[in-house]
Nucleic acid binder design. Structure first.
Lengths: 117, 117
DNA sequence: TTGACATATTCCTATATAGGAATATAAATA
DNA sequence: TATTTATATTCCTATATAGGAATATGTCAA
């Protein structure tokens, strides 16, 4: 079996670094494809293709304005990622406490044994 | 060019749904591979391989205890994902305000024109 | 030493891209 | 209508998996 489709969900879509850059650029506000091409310095088809994937998973939404297409970030979908990562919050919060607990655990688990190796 | 390596960074590592399940299981605390196999119900080599990727990008760390290997979540790396997603916080916070603004924008952008089509 | 147990690694293959190049589509404008 | 401008799509190929199967490695216990 191959890897999961990039369009399977938000996680797969943002796995590609370039798609994260696109989203970061769009964080400055809604903008047409041309602006993104200018900011990112990539070939236009490349930008459009990445936007297509982001659109398909719902990380961005579009609206037409004349011959331009204005893309913007869709917060809801990014919140999905945020919420998922947040469930591990306690693993980085209380850093000092954790280091202390870890040290105590280690002392219990590895009692000094003068006979082994 | 193919897709970026799953071991390129945390984002690529957690793109695979199964690896997210592994991390979620480990959220209950440090545990040996066998426990994960039991909880997830996957073949042992599959669990080990996913753990290998998570280990390589630093999302988990291991310590040996006899013939077991105890894996645990590494918060720091998950915080990277959390922080990235958090930069889009304003796109989902103040939801009601945003919907209101959007409606106003729409009214400005699409003036009623009795002459077109 | 010989099993038994716990985990990792190797080999194999089907598959889904990402990027480049070329082209198609759509809308404004002259 | 012909042209320009803005964006999307198609075609092609190299590549990195993910899973399955088999096996290797490492460690404890008798």
């Amino acid at each position: 079996m191959a890897r999961a489709a990039t369009t399977l969900d938000s996680f797969n879509a943002v796995a590609e670094p370039k798609r994260r850059y696109v989203l970061e650029a769009l964080a400055d506000g809604e903008m047409p494809v041309g602006d993104l091409v200018g900011r990112l310095g990539w070939p236009q088809p490349m930008v459009s293709k990445h936007l297509g994937v982001l659109k398909e998973v719902g990380l961005v939404s579009v609206r037409r304005d004349g011959r331009q297409r204005l893309y913007r970030v869709n917060g809801e979908k990014l919140k999905t990622i945020y919420d998922w990562a947040k469930m591990f919050e306690r693993f980085w919060a209380h850093q000092l406490l954790r280091i202390k607990e870890q040290a105590e655990r280690k002392n219990k688990e590895k009692p000094i044994n003068h006979f082994e190796r």
